[in-house]
Design a protein around this nucleic acid. Structure first.
Length: 274
DNA sequence: CTCCAGGCTTTAG
DNA sequence: CTAAAGCATGGA
């Protein structure tokens, strides 16, 4: 077992996990067990340090984006002088953007569309339980996220039965395509072309493509526009555009290469008062 | 009962 | 091209 340690001021496990970028984690002892692809870790905070316990330190160092200077990101966020963004970057100083498995993001965010977070988590959990390889971490069993081949071996009725609703065929069709083609050709693409390619998969539109690009391919210039962003665009930016693609262009132009981080702070601040 | 959730596909104009 | 209906499910 390895232990990675870092400054808790820029790594609050609750903020990082509960902000909708990841769906596989459970409260455990003083912190959380976190699952990604076929790996697991235990993350918790002691005083001013956040500790990550795991078997694969290199994987989770990258996963939690530990090479990034978040103090600089937060300063940049405040420099835009937008009240909601400054509030998000202040209250959410412990936020981080995760570097997750691209395939896991593809299926997870297909499920996320027009859905709520508790239900998304349940559907993904049941899929892993049924199709993911069994592993063990800290004396307890868990299931890896299934391979595309394992997902493709099931049809739409299987996903419907797990509660995926009308997204059943999206999962069946896209897993079949990826099992046949792979996704290696996507990694070298420039971000605009990556987004365009992602939207050619069944069940992936512009918003889901931005989430996959941001969380699964490390494209920090991506800015997903969902119902929350649309709401804060109107209420906090005085925006009048109604087309989400245009709202996306507005924010990408405003925030540039770090738009994804700004999106997380805004999302965080807007969701705080629920 | 209706409304909504990290929207997409299909169809109509 | 844009606009709107239809879509499963579960909780508020």
């Amino acid at each position: 077992m390895q232990i990675i340690e870092c400054d808790a001021a820029y790594f609050n496990p609750r903020d990082v996990l509960e902000c909708g970028q990841i769906f596989r984690f459970i409260p455990f002892k003083e912190g959380y067990k976190v699952f990604s692809a076929d790996k697991a870790c235990y993350v918790h905070t002691q005083k001013d340090r956040t500790l990550i316990e795991c078997e694969d330190g290199d994987y989770f160092y990258n996963f939690f984006d530990l090479g990034r200077d978040y103090a600089a990101i937060i300063e940049k966020a405040k420099s835009f002088d937008v009240p909601l963004l400054t509030r998000g970057a202040t209250l959410g100083a412990g936020l981080r953007l995760l570097n997750q498995s691209a395939e896991e993001m593809i299926y997870s965010f297909i499920i996320s569309q027009n859905n709520n977070i508790p239900r998304i988590k349940g559907i993904i959990e049941r899929i892993c339980e049924k199709l993911g390889e069994e592993r063990e971490f800290m004396g307890e069993k868990y299931h890896a996220f299934p391979s595309s081949a394992a997902l493709a071996a099931q049809g739409a009725p299987f996903y419907k039965q797990l509660g995926a609703g009308y997204r059943d065929n999206y999962l069946a069709a896209t897993s079949a395509r990826i099992a046949a083609e792979g996704i290696e050709m996507l990694y070298p693409l420039p971000t605009p072309q990556l987004k365009k390619q992602l939207t050619t998969y069944t069940g992936i539109g512009p918003k889901v493509a931005d989430c996959i690009s941001l969380f699964g391919f490390g494209r920090r210039e991506s800015f997903p526009v969902d119902t929350w962003i649309e709401k804060l665009y109107r209420e906090d930016f005085g925006g009048t555009l109604k087309d989400r693609n245009k709202i996306n262009a507005y924010f990408c132009n405003l925030f540039g290469e770090d738009a994804g981080y700004m999106q997380q702070y805004l999302f965080y601040a807007k969701r705080e008062n629920m």
